[in-house]
C-alpha cells in the first residue's frame, strides 16, 4: 500500500472516497438485481477499478467530453449522470438516461457531454478523435485562443482495445493532427478471458502509444491519488500543448467479465492478491492514518451511498415502460428536431 500523504483538502479527499463508495454500492446492488431478473442483458461490473474513473474524471472540466466503454456505470455516475437515471436505464425504464433504449452498456448523457456507453471494443476511440477534431476546427474551439484553455476529450478503453485496428488508427490520427484527446487505458489485464500476455507480443501498452509519438504515463490504477495526479498531468499536457496524451491505469476487476462469466481463465489467488490492494480500503486507510477520516465518518459516507442506491432502485422500480407505440422513435431525427 502506498502510505504517502493524501495531498488534498478534506472536502475533496472525501469526495473521492464517496464517489468510489457510490460506484461500489450501486454495482453490488446491480449484481443482486441482475440475479433477481430486474436487470437483464449484459452487465459488466467495474468493482475493483473505481479509483480510475473517480481519480480521472475529477480532473476534467464540465465542458470536456467523455467517451467510455460498456463497463461505464462508474464513469457516468462520477461525470454527473444521476444514479436514478443510471439505475432506471439498467431496468429498461423510460426514465433511464437513454430512455431504456441502451441499457447497462449504452449510458449516454448530452448534458454532461457523456458520449457512451460504446460496446464495440475500440469503437469509442475514433469517436473521441472526431470530437477532439471538432474542438480543434470549430469556431468556438478556435476562439479559445492563446489565453483560454482547450476542451479535452477523455477516452476510456480497456487493454483489449489495443489489439484492435481502431486503437492504432486513432492513436496515429490524434498524434498526426495534434488533437486534444486524453487516452485513458484501463489495463485490467484481461480482455474478457484472454490475458494480455496471451494476446499481445508487446505487453507494455505505453510503448504502443509511444510508437505513435504520443506521450505516456503508467500509473497504479488502484490508487485514486496516483490516478488523479497522473490525469492532471495528462490534461495539462493536452491543454497546453494541444496534442494527445496516453495514460495506462494498471487495475483489476474483482468480479467476472459479465454476469455470464464462470472465470475459468484466472486463479483465485490472483484475484485475492489484487483485492488486498483494493482501492476503497487502501484509500480509506490512508485517510485514517492521516487523521482525515474517522471510522464514523467512513460509515456515514457509506450509509449515504447506500441510501442513494436504495433511492435509485425505488426510482427505477417506479419508472414506466415506454409505450410500444413509441418503438420506432429515435431511429431518425424528427423533422424540425435538434441535433447535437
Amino acid at each position: 500500500m502506498n502510505a504517502s500523504a493524501v495531498p488534498y483538502d478534506k472536502p475533496f479527499a472525501l469526495r473521492l472516497l464517496k464517489d468510489m463508495l457510490r460506484i461500489r454500492r450501486m454495482e453490488e446492488e446491480a449484481a443482486e438485481l441482475y440475479g433477481a431478473g430486474k436487470i437483464r442483458g449484459f452487465l459488466h461490473l467495474y468493482i475493483g477499478e473505481e479509483a480510475v474513473a473517480v481519480g480521472a474524471l475529477h480532473a476534467l472540466q464540465p465542458d470536456d467530453a467523455i467517451v467510455a466503454t460498456y463497463r461505464e456505470h462508474g464513469h457516468a455516475l462520477v461525470r454527473g449522470v444521476s444514479m436514478n437515471a443510471i439505475m432506471a436505464e439498467m431496468f429498461g425504464k423510460q426514465e433511464g438516461c437513454s430512455r431504456g433504449r441502451g441499457g447497462s452498456m449504452h449510458l449516454f448523457d448530452a448534458a454532461t457531454r457523456f458520449y457512451g456507453g460504446n460496446a464495440i471494443v475500440g469503437g469509442g476511440l475514433p469517436l473521441a478523435v472526431g470530437l477532439a477534431l471538432a474542438d480543434q476546427l470549430s469556431p468556438e474551439g478556435i476562439s479559445y485562443g492563446a489565453q483560454h484553455r482547450r476542451r479535452v476529450t477523455a477516452c476510456f478503453f480497456g487493454d483489449g482495445a489495443v489489439a484492435e485496428g481502431a486503437f492504432h488508427e486513432s492513436m496515429n490520427l490524434a498524434a498526426l493532427w495534434r488533437l486534444p484527446v486524453l487516452f485513458c487505458c484501463e489495463n485490467n489485464l484481461y480482455a474478457m478471458g484472454t490475458s494480455l500476455a496471451r494476446s499481445e507480443s508487446q505487453t507494455d501498452l505505453c510503448a504502443k502509444a509511444a510508437a505513435y509519438k504520443v506521450e505516456t504515463l503508467k500509473v497504479d490504477g488502484m490508487d485514486v491519488v496516483a490516478v488523479h495526479d497522473a490525469t492532471r498531468i495528462g490534461i495539462a499536457h493536452v491543454r497546453d500543448k494541444g496534442g494527445p496524451f496516453f495514460i495506462e491505469f494498471q487495475t483489476f476487476r474483482f468480479r467476472a467479465h459479465s454476469m455470464y462469466d464462470p472465470e475459468l481463465y484466472r486463479d483465485k489467488a490472483e484475484v485475492e492478491a489484487w483485492k488486498q490492494r483494493g482501492p476503497l480500503h487502501s484509500y480509506s486507510a490512508r485517510l485514517k492514518a492521516q487523521g482525515m477520516l474517522t471510522e464514523d465518518e467512513f460509515l456515514a459516507c457509506d450509509a449515504e451511498a447506500q441510501a442513494e442506491v436504495d433511492a435509485s432502485i425505488a426510482y427505477a422500480e417506479a419508472g414506466a415502460w415506454e409505450p410500444v407505440e413509441d418503438l420506432m422513435r429515435d431511429v431518425l431525427t424528427p423533422v424540425g428536431g435538434t441535433t447535437s
Binding site: 469517436l127 473521441a128 490520427l173
Partner: peptide
C-alpha cells in the same frame, strides 16, 4: 477508413 470515418462521426457529434 475505420479511423477517419469514426472521426467523422465524432466531429459530427461535436458540432461540425
Amino acid at each position: 477508413e475505420l479511423g477517419f470515418v469514426g472521426a467523422g462521426i465524432g466531429a459530427a457529434l461535436g458540432g461540425m
